[in-house]
Amino acid sequence: MRRLHLTRRHALAAGLSLAAALALGSPAHADGFPDRQITMVVPFAAGGSTDVVARIVAQKMSDDLGQQVIVQNVAGAGGNLGADNVARAEPDGYTILMGTVATHALNPLILKSTPYDAEKDFAPISLLVVVPNVLIVNPELPVKTVAELVALLKAEPGKYSYASSGNGTPLHLSGELFKSMAGVEMEHIPYKGSGPALNDVIGNQVPIMFDNLPSSSGHIKTGTLRGLAVTTKERAPSFPEMPTVGESVPGYETYTWNALFAPAGTPPEVVARLNVAAGKALADPAVAERMTEFSATVVGSTPEELAAHVKAEIAKWTPVVRDAKIQLD
């Protein structure tokens, strides 16, 4: 199989000229897959963390598959539009989805009706990365630990608010789970995405926030925000000093994950081929390095492991969503 070795000049040419299309047709595989470009649907806007993961992985998968894997952003309805598009696409492996905890665990629980079934309508390909969330506060808030925050919130119930990237997002649910497990009261202030929310926390308009670790790690390092704890079970490798929320609120664990899915009914050999390509992309040292800088942990999995993971995630979030009484139309 011929590989696409991109030099800087070639890479540029690929975008600006015909090179991308003329690049390569790989005849190497027995079943002939893939013989044309593959579309990876990202169900969120370009530039977000899911999009970045998708573009890094898609680039490397193209190298292995010998066909371009192009990223298409189909944003809308908290990821449901893009996920639904893929669920209804031809099950031939040429349309795949960059799924997340939102599209495959939370949305089906939160929404009164989801147009697809997270388990039955998809053929899992591979889990890719796990991204920790982080509990951050404005440095002017007089708390340095999760325990102090809990004490402050208990002393003045209802006085403080917390920001999130939107209603029903994994970060909102991280906050709601924290409220119910720690037994505290905070007012939820939703924003349109993480950026504006972060802005208001830095400006101390809202003192507390749950965020993805990648988007606020720069602020934690420079001290414009105080990171109290990460939400994963283990401490984050990029912040070994920072405790986990679970160390103060036993049993607390949330995180965001990204995984590839094909439409249900995709031939197993095609799924297997895509799984291999995804695995090779994740094993690439450059990718691993980027992901680590980005505070994401490369995981990878077999299709079966991903199916089990989705089932486990749904089981985990069902009681949380029910207890927090989050129900959207």
């Binding site: 806007a45 370009a46 530039g47 977000g48 963390s49 999009d51 970045v52 573009r55 890094i56 995405g193 950026g195 990648p214 790690s217 720069g218 602020h219 390092k221 420079t222 414009t224 390095e289 980027r290 800088e293 980005f294």
Partner: peptide, 18 residues
């Protein structure tokens, strides 16, 4: 937002330290 994505792809974590 896309520029932020581009920085992250490059391994630069956007923030006040840039």
């Amino acid at each position: 937002a896309l520029m932020v994505g581009a920085m992250i792809i490059q391994g630069i974590v956007p923030g006040p330290n840039v």
